[in-house]
Simulated assay, not measured.
Amino acid sequence: MQITPDENSMHARLHSSVLFCRCIGLLIAVGLCAQAWAAEGGQALRDKYQSLAQQLADNAFHRPLVLESTETPNMLKGDIYSVVDYPFATVSGALGDPAQGPANWCDVLILHLNIKYCHAASGASAGVLDVNLGRKVEQTLSSSYRLEFGYHPVVSNADYFRVELSADSGPFSTRDYRIVLEAIPSPAGGNHTFLHLTYTYGYGTAGRLAMRTYLATVGSNKVGFTKAAESPGAAPEYVGGVRGLLERNTMRYYLAIDAYLKSLSAPSDKRLQQRLTTWFSATEQYPQQLHEVERQDYLQMKHHEVERQQTAQ
């Protein structure tokens, strides 16, 4: 049977219509999934807030904060839940926005002692953060370790957002790095936000050996925040080892987020200095766990590293 030009056009239009309907259906499905994820994630955070309300109000951190940690033979995971004194829209807009989020996260991460460099760029499907890990002193980029974090704004609406940073591999056979931040407006009301930060990574044999070496030398006397033992009249004992290491770094990342958000109310040319001084002062509130360098050494090192970020790739 011969097909006329009109029939060809009709078939083409029909094919286009089917494809269009399938695309619309996919978009609707994705939208519904995002809505379901937002509803489920938001409700889970509200439930978590209720279960932690007493700990948030009364704890050893002198701020509404709860830290939890998990150690398995091949993975470390730290979670911090906290109420911060910033509107939800400010937190979501600064750290969950697909356009500005990656660069803003670099401003957060560089505050950490071990982050020596961070550069944000656009990837195939999301933002990309090139991050260098190193020691707690000034060093060249060539002597540090480069990780590539993917930036994924998973979901964002008027009362819940979730963003994930992930890197498949790192130094010494470490792998599956994930930094996840999710938040809701504070269930207690007011212009506050209840947020949940997760920091996790896995490790193999080389990573385990590297951590053992560190913990047997310069890290031998370092501890985390979870009490391992407590006796009447005696100073509390805190977890050490790799779990203590994880807790210290999870807290450093949380304090970096808080310092970044606090700086947003300052004039743009004053924000870097405020972030640096706020972060360092906050870490000094927990000297047993977080003190590593003196204030002036930290400020000088970080100013040099931020300046290097403007040119190095």
Rank of each mutant, 00 (worst) to 15 (best):
Q139I: 02
G101V: 10
L52I: 05
T283C: 14
E68H: 11
M10Y: 13
Q54C: 00
T72F: 03
Y214H: 07
D176F: 07
A167V: 01
H192A: 12
A216K: 07
A167Q: 03
R63A: 10
V131I: 15
S142K: 14
G42F: 08
V108K: 08
P73S: 15
E305D: 10
N221S: 12
E164F: 02
S268T: 14
L67Y: 05
R208M: 09
Q273S: 15
L290H: 04
G240W: 03
S9R: 14
K262C: 03
V84Y: 01
G150Y: 04
E307G: 06
D269Q: 15
D130V: 05
W37E: 12
V18F: 10
C33F: 15
T277Y: 05
W37K: 04
V306I: 11
D107A: 13
L52P: 09
G78S: 09
Y117R: 06
T217G: 07
G42C: 09
R63H: 04
P98V: 05
A60H: 14
G25H: 06
A57K: 14
I179E: 06
S92F: 11
P87G: 03
T174F: 01
V293Y: 00
G31W: 07
T311L: 03
C118M: 07
Q139A: 06
A126M: 04
Q285E: 12
S186L: 00
V218G: 02
Q296M: 14
S281A: 15
A282G: 00
T140Q: 12
L290D: 09
D269G: 01
T278G: 04
A158G: 12
K136A: 04
T174I: 01
G189N: 12
S122P: 03
S9D: 10
P287D: 09
E284I: 01
T250S: 02
E138Q: 13
T311W: 08
E148Q: 15
G233E: 08
L27F: 13
Y203N: 06
P187V: 01
K302D: 11
V91L: 15
V163A: 06
A210G: 02
A44E: 11
D176I: 01
R178G: 03
F149R: 08
E294V: 06
K116D: 01
P232M: 02
G170D: 05
L76E: 12
S143D: 15
A34N: 09
S156Y: 00
S220N: 07
E71K: 14
A34R: 14
R178V: 11
A99L: 14
R175M: 12
S16Q: 15
L246Y: 06
E292D: 12
Q310V: 13
R243S: 05
L56K: 04
E7V: 06
L45A: 03
T311Q: 10
T226D: 05
I3N: 00
T226C: 02
Y214E: 04
P185Q: 02
P102Y: 07
E7G: 00
L27K: 10
S169Q: 15
Q139P: 03
I28R: 10
D168H: 13
S166R: 13
